[in-house]
Design a binder for these strands. Sequence first.
DNA 1: GACCAGGTCCTTG
DNA 2: CAAGGACATGGT
Length: 211
Amino acid sequence: MSGSSSNKISHLIRVLAGCFGEIAWWPGYPDEVMIGAILTQQTRWENVERALANLKKRDLCSIDSIFTSDIRDIEDAIRCTGFYRVKAKRLKSLATYVMETFGGVERMADEPTGQLRAGLLNVSGIGEETADSILCYGLDRTSFVVDAYTERMIRCIGVPEKKQDIKALFEENLPEDNHAYRQVHAHIVEYAKEFCGKRRCHECILVSSSG
DNA sequence: GACCAGGTCCTTG
DNA sequence: CAAGGACATGGT
């Protein structure tokens, strides 16, 4: 059962790599990625980019400035991402956690990934996806991101495991390499956006797992 | 106008 | 523990 799912996952990883090759996805300096990870919750990326530009214009696109600035200013800058009041609070919570626990983003480098993840999950407004996005794309860690697209994708190829087990399934089939983690997740999103509808998958060319 | 978007939290049954 | 609602703007 789990073995068959594991085969499907490893097959998926290979096929998608062949389809897309190297793609640049979610570039940015750590602070920007951490902020974007919260802004993108239930929101299209294009709107997040606008908000990030607004924040940069006002010198608010850093954990340090989020920590010290007026929450009203943050709300104004991120309004275009929706849920702007909760998100402003979440950004404040994240910044408070980082500044009060470590004293700055750079200081998080010494912390083991597992402990960092636990710490992030403890921040109000940061769940599994946001935590893993911050770890993988912001802090160069091997923590696989399972988002809505990933879940759709794996349903398309007939993997029944629950969302929480999907993460482990991917990590078992990946080398301990941040670049590989980023690429695979990026490939999945690019594929799923196009072919995996919310209800059903339109082009499941990836179903075969017997190899 | 209806429906959806790279979630998370809180409240109910 | 699962299901449902709230949070809100912007695009199709």
